[in-house]
Nucleic acid binder design. Structure first.
Lengths: 230, 230
DNA sequence: ACCTGAACACCGTTCAAGT
DNA sequence: ACCTGAACACCGTTCAAGT
């Protein structure tokens, strides 16, 4: 049943998913669904959390940065298989019901082993979750359901016509940005994956995380001016 | 009209927003709305992009990291005023119609001045957008609309009952995580803002971004093993 | 235990008609 | 130009009734 729901979401998006469609697909009266599930939202939650189920968790031994990199990649691949789910998964992350404690535990154990402590550990944890989910949610965001092709065409010509006088930097880099940059692109990450930018994102987040390690404070007090300022 | 729509979204969420409610609020027949706007989605887009309108853009002169930090903070404050909009704003970012070119241009100019070049510039741009939007979208994500209080209670007791044997790291840090950590928390960022984690996030992203600077490659080629490795 | 069937209170959107 | 009014094809969800 949740599998059937997920298939429908893959076809029509979360917005376009209806209990009555699901009932039709299952060859049953719409109201029969309510014997198994409390509401449409619960159904969506269930289907969505199915996507997270098979993601292998990181191990606390080994290089913590490589473990996280692997986790981020696996999360992205899992979402790529059900891109319509990205929004809900990102916004609610295991929206309803049991948000697998093993998942949380694995990340905490990994970060602890890496040397994060106390408040820094909590921050590192939040950074990891946001990093894992943030980029992919944006990458997979789909264009307006109303008239995708019409929107894409209008958007593209709108972008092509930016004035070099008013927006020189944008005009200068436009060719490079058309299919590869958020906001500028007129397609979604399903049609045009942002592979290299994703890898850059992971690199940025993993490198940046070291700033939350206790050791970072010591290094900094040697007088280096860096992002910690202010 | 878009203002009235935004007020309704603030009250009932995007999901709960209806054209007929809006018409009621404006003292007009539901169908009259369609003289001004093409569809419910266009209405939501318009209302949502209103939230982005007043955000001050960064300047290309001055410290690029401080400029970005300011932008991230302003974005967050703008979304905090209309938290229900976070999901749509995050997923679609200026979902329909003109995605203000000045905004894109300002970020590109800033990154160029900071020394990002070619492909690294595109990556840095994508990282900046994802960083700005990612954390805040997650932070403001609201709990299931069905029965928020019931969900929160169930979630909290579910979390309280994690087995220390099965999930030692989680159990050990639970008190610290309850109101401050993604997934674990049972409230949203509106009730319990994640201020310090947000600042940590910004620090991580800004520090991490330096890894995409051309200078970073030079420094790296001296033999340091770091996050660039695969 | 599991499903049907009827019913309720909603939707977004169209189109012709009014002014 | 701007709005009404009727109508269409949908919704999610309830509750009693069937088996």
């Amino acid at each position: 049943m949740l599998v059937a729901a997920l298939e429908l979401i893959d076809q029509n998006g979360v917005e376009g998913f209806s209990v009555r469609d699901l009932a039709r697909k299952l060859g049953v009266f719409p109201t029969a669904v309510y014997w198994y599930v409390e509401s449409r939202n619960a159904l969506i939650s269930g289907a969505v959390s199915h996507v997270m189920k098979d993601i292998r968790l990181p191990k606390a031994d080994g290089n913590w940065q490589e473990e996280l990199r692997g986790l981020f990649r696996r999360y992205r691949l899992a979402v790529r298989r059900h891109p319509n789910v990205a929004v809900v998964l990102g916004a609610q992350l295991v929206s309803n019901e049991s948000p697998d404690p093993a998942f949380i535990d694995a990340i905490l154990a990994l970060l602890e082993a890496a040397g994060f402590k106390d408040g820094g550990l909590v921050h590192a944890y939040n950074v990891v979750i946001a990093a894992m989910v943030g980029f992919v949610t944006m990458e997979m965001a789909s264009r307006p359901a109303d008239d995708p092709q019409g929107w894409a065409d209008a958007h593209e010509s709108h972008m092509q016509s930016v004035s070099a006088a008013d927006h020189p930097a944008l005009a200068r880099h436009l060719p490079r940005l058309m299919k590869k940059a958020f906001i500028v692109r007129s397609s979604s990450g399903i049609e045009h994956p942002l592979d290299t930018s994703f890898e850059a994102w992971v690199r940025v987040c993993l490198h940046g995380l070291t700033v939350l390690l206790p050791a970072a404070d010591a290094a900094k007090s040697k007088g280096a001016v860096d992002a910690k300022s202010r």
